[in-house]
Simulated scan of single mutants.
Amino acid sequence: MSSFYSWALNNLKVDRRLILTYCTVYFAWGMLMNWFGNEMEIARFTYWWQVISCYILYMVPISLLLRKLPFHMQYAYGLIAMGLLEFGGYFFKTSYAFPDNMLDQIVGIRNFTLGMALFFAFYFPLGNWAVGKTYELIFKEKE
């Protein structure tokens, strides 16, 4: 267990500017997705501030831990993380799925949460890529 602990600490020790970049990108992404899910009547958070708890407090640390792994591993570990998050959100009713939404119509009501987890697991590899490019663009050292 101590090797995992030291690995995790090493991956979480990053430049504060990188953390700020993650928080900014993920917050904007979360607000946009919550708006889109609400507008398209697919799903939404019960409260807007859940974007902070889910996207920043949950997804940013996971993204930091996964950022150095290959795309397929980030997706696989992200699938576990998002499966737990999606299940918890609907179980505790902190997320709301609109009745008979477009995903229900495509994949069926029993597969809705699985479909959401499969989709949102892409956030980790795509988010790490987007944050890396944004960070490099903004904070690249002048030579």
Rank of each mutant, 00 (worst) to 15 (best):
G83I: 11
F122D: 00
Y90A: 02
I80W: 14
E39L: 02
N101K: 02
L84I: 15
M116D: 05
Q74H: 08
T134Y: 11
T46S: 12
G37A: 05
Y77V: 10
N38G: 08
I42E: 00
N38R: 14
F112E: 02
T134M: 09
A76N: 03
A130F: 13
W49S: 09
F92A: 03
I109E: 09
F91Y: 13
Y96N: 01
L57P: 06
F87W: 15
A43T: 13
G115L: 02
E39N: 03
F45S: 02
A97Q: 07
A76G: 10
M116A: 12
N128R: 09
G132S: 13
M73T: 12
M73C: 06
R67Q: 14
E136Y: 15
G127D: 04
L66E: 05
I62G: 05
V131K: 07
G89V: 04
A97V: 01
G132T: 12
K93A: 11
Q50E: 13
A76P: 04
Y123P: 00
A76H: 04
R44G: 01
Q74M: 12
I62D: 03
G78S: 06
F112T: 01
L114P: 05
F120Y: 14
S63L: 13
P61A: 06
F36N: 00
M102N: 02
K93I: 10
V131M: 10
C54Q: 12
F119R: 05
P99M: 03
G115Q: 01
N111T: 05
L64E: 02
W129V: 05
Y47C: 07
F98H: 00
T113K: 11
I62R: 08
W129Q: 05
N34I: 05
M116W: 10
F124I: 11
M82F: 12
Q50M: 15
Y55G: 00
F119C: 06
W49R: 07
D104Y: 01
S63R: 12
L85R: 09
A81D: 03
L32R: 03
E86G: 07
I56V: 15
Q105N: 11
W35I: 01
L114E: 04
L32C: 08
V107D: 00
F71Q: 08
F122I: 14
F87R: 08
F91L: 09
G83Q: 05
